Amino acid sequence: MKGRSILLRAALPAVFVLLPVAFAQNNPAIAQATYKVEDGSKVDPNTLLGWRTWRALDCERCHGAQQQGLVGPSLVDAFKTLDKNEFHRTVFGGRVDKGMPDFSSSQMMQKNWENLYAYLKGRSDGQIKPGDLQAIDAK
């Protein structure tokens, strides 16, 4: 019995080291939003697509031009805790009782929801400034 206890204790640190890594890799809610930004307004191509999705779907009519909130909540504040899974559920199911439409029929949203998430996360993190964006490699 004592030998098993020692073996278990020896194995536990390895399990605890490996478990969080495997869990994060298999759980998109844990994965970080990936965006690259320079000078606050130059972003990587995917994040630029996210911003263009924001503009094309006119999200600012409810969430404000700077994502500060109007009739809809501030996304700058919400993205401090909102994970990718909850964002996906919200844009593809809506919150009709609160006025948030369901965007599941939008081809643009289907193709770019992760890019939109990255853009909004960058805004919430304070790395992307409000206003027009351009590609990092743009002159």
Score class of each variant (00 low, 15 high):
2 K>Y: 12
4 R>D: 11
4 R>F: 14
4 R>L: 15
6 I>N: 14
7 L>T: 13
7 L>D: 13
9 R>F: 13
10 A>Q: 09
10 A>R: 08
11 A>I: 14
11 A>S: 15
11 A>K: 10
12 L>V: 15
13 P>H: 12
13 P>A: 12
15 V>E: 08
16 F>Y: 15
17 V>A: 11
18 L>R: 09
19 L>D: 11
20 P>H: 08
21 V>D: 08
21 V>K: 10
23 F>Q: 15
28 P>A: 13
28 P>F: 13
28 P>V: 14
30 I>F: 14
30 I>V: 15
30 I>H: 10
32 Q>R: 14
32 Q>H: 14
37 V>Y: 01
39 D>M: 04
39 D>P: 02
39 D>A: 07
40 G>K: 04
42 K>H: 12
42 K>G: 02
43 V>H: 00
44 D>N: 04
47 T>A: 04
48 L>P: 03
48 L>Y: 08
50 G>Q: 03
50 G>S: 02
50 G>R: 00
51 W>M: 01
52 R>S: 07
53 T>Q: 07
56 A>Q: 06
57 L>W: 03
57 L>Y: 04
57 L>A: 06
57 L>C: 06
58 D>V: 12
59 C>K: 01
62 C>I: 02
62 C>M: 05
63 H>N: 03
63 H>D: 02
64 G>F: 03
66 Q>H: 08
67 Q>I: 04
69 G>H: 05
70 L>E: 15
71 V>S: 11
71 V>M: 10
71 V>Q: 10
72 G>V: 03
73 P>G: 04
75 L>K: 00
77 D>W: 07
77 D>R: 11
78 A>V: 05
81 T>K: 13
82 L>R: 11
82 L>Y: 10
83 D>C: 07
84 K>C: 07
86 E>S: 12
87 F>N: 00
87 F>S: 01
87 F>W: 05
89 R>Y: 15
90 T>A: 10
91 V>I: 09
92 F>C: 08
93 G>E: 11
93 G>K: 06
94 G>W: 05
95 R>Q: 12
99 G>M: 08
100 M>L: 11
102 D>C: 08
103 F>L: 07
106 S>W: 01
111 K>F: 11
112 N>V: 02
112 N>H: 06
112 N>M: 03
113 W>L: 07
114 E>G: 03
115 N>D: 02
116 L>F: 03
116 L>S: 00
116 L>H: 00
117 Y>Q: 06
121 K>H: 08
121 K>T: 05
127 Q>N: 14
127 Q>Y: 08
130 P>N: 03
131 G>M: 06
131 G>A: 09
133 L>K: 01
134 Q>G: 05
135 A>M: 09
135 A>V: 03
136 I>M: 05
136 I>G: 01
136 I>A: 02
137 D>K: 14
138 A>C: 09
